[in-house]
Write a protein that binds this DNA or RNA. Structure first.
Lengths: 294, 294
DNA sequence: AAGTGGTCTAGACCACTTT
DNA sequence: AAGTGGTCTAGACCACTTC
């Protein structure tokens, strides 16, 4: 069932008749018959751009954006789980009482944001981090020669701690909040290449243990997605060049002072909520960070 | 005038009548009345994916992709120059004898690739590197604190040389071909932060002098675009961490061995043709490389 | 054959900019 | 008022997958 407040505002007063000409009147309520036909002013936008403080224009948003927000809600709530098939365009069009073209445009954007994947003839699927193609979306380190492949992990440390001030600030927590700290080394063909430290909100990742991490093969984001219902959507990364300190030098088996690529990355889930801070040091003597600019 | 061979193949035999049911028959030839109505099999794709050697399926491509290719040709040929307004969607639809929706979808993709920019109420404009928003598309180095702004350039060296083997390979030239070599340092607030070396094909950039570079204010890509008719479309970048050698240390006024971000970037113009190799060393003590992953 | 996404059309109206 | 891009609809057919 679609939760309460979901009234679509058609600010484009559709083409062919039947719709009352009064602007702002919903074409028809969504799903569930009884629902107060109040004009929605972009309030159902969980994902979208922050709502400007007060006043400002009524913030009209096109129908397809409202549909997109509704679909996103269903993704976030787990109504359709990662890897699963979502309802067809025609069915969604019927459910939302809009044309298929409008649903299509909504899904087009979701597909562009990698939240869903379309497959002609089969349907539209919820994206998942359990796929070869998703593995390298956030890991851009590739070997100078040979084909990219996923590294092996060795966990150094996993513990619950109180969030230091800088970590808390980046993750939108309060200083001292419980967080899970993970430190690991990753190996390409047996060569230690990445040492990274992760912080995760304790509230969300309660029950995450070293044992669970070790026994799980594959990308951590896959584990997070299936075990903790938290899917990483996008990330923001800051890259620098630094010198290896004693700790990194030992773990990566390199000389003190070797130049390393430093990456500080904050990952976000639905609603632009930060749910991971990751600080990595990359050895780039046989690998490089690959970026496509456009 | 649209050059010869531009016949659209409508492999979707449009909806409402008038079109002969024979598959492969063009809906109607494009522009210029007289043109041999021959079935085109994606031959007019200059930009697109390489045409598979021989045989293989007839390589159908949707109408909007063919329109996109035609528009791209006009952009490349300079029929519409950077910063200029291109014909309206309705006009293009009329010219190509397709519906406005089809032109729209073609332009949508061009806009997504930053080749054109749409402005509601005004029209669609050819993108240009002479814009504030374009300045940071390829330069991702931003200050740790304060607002980003464009650096000042000081040119160290500008000369014609023969392409070394590695440069030639990356730029799709023959070893020994004439190239223009440029070395410069860039300053943020007076602090030397970037030292970079560029190689450009001598054939295209004939007449590029140190004097012209020095007197020109603004991003080099702007100069290349207006003076040499070569517009950079996308780039591929490899990033590493390295130690400052004697030359870099002197130019950046830092200690020998200071860690620097190394970027090797190949930029491409229309038709995925490489037209610039740029090797930069970035001092990241007060700046960082900003990347958004999604 | 039926269902799904993908393409194409034609026409309507909205939001925005300029005349 | 006229022109441009932006949204929305309804219906047709194509390409692909599955039954």
């Amino acid at each position: 069932m679609n939760s309460a407040s979901s009234n679509l505002t058609n600010n484009a007063t559709a083409a062919s008749g039947a719709v009352s000409p009064t602007a702002g009147t919903p074409a028809t309520p969504v799903a569930a018959a009884a629902s107060t036909p109040v004009t929605v002013t972009a309030a159902s936008n969980t994902t979208a751009s922050a709502v400007p403080a007060v006043t400002a224009s009524p913030t009209f948003s096109p129908l397809y954006q409202q549909i997109k927000a509704l679909i996103t809600q269903s993704l976030q709530s787990g109504e359709w789980k990662p890897g699963e098939l979502i309802p067809s365009e025609v069915e969604l069009a019927g459910r939302f009482k809009v044309s298929q073209g409008t649903v299509r445009k909504a899904i087009d954007e979701l597909a562009a944001e990698n939240l869903v994947m379309r497959r002609q003839g089969k349907g539209t699927f919820v994206s998942t981090h359990h796929e070869a193609r998703a593995h390298f979306r956030f890991l851009r380190l590739v070997p100078d020669e040979g084909v990219p492949h996923y590294p092996e992990s060795k966990f150094i440390e996993v513990k619950r701690v109180r969030a230091p001030a800088d970590v808390a600030r980046l993750m939108d927590l309060k200083s001292g909040d419980a967080v899970i700290f993970i430190k690991r080394v990753q190996y390409f063909d047996g060569v230690p290449t990445i040492v990274e430290e992760l912080w995760l909100p304790g509230l969300i990742f309660k029950g995450l243990t070293a044992e669970r991490l070790v026994e799980y093969k594959g990308p951590m984001y896959g584990l997070f997605e299936t075990e903790f219902g938290t899917r990483m959507i996008r990330a923001s990364e800051q890259i620098r060049a630094v010198c290896a300190d004693a700790g990194a030098a030992q773990l990566l088996n390199i000389d003190l002072g070797t130049p390393l690529l430093s990456s500080e990355r904050v990952s976000f889930t639905y609603g632009d909520k930060p749910v991971e801070l990751r600080r990595g040091l990359y050895l780039t003597s046989r690998h490089h960070y690959q970026n496509e600019l456009s």
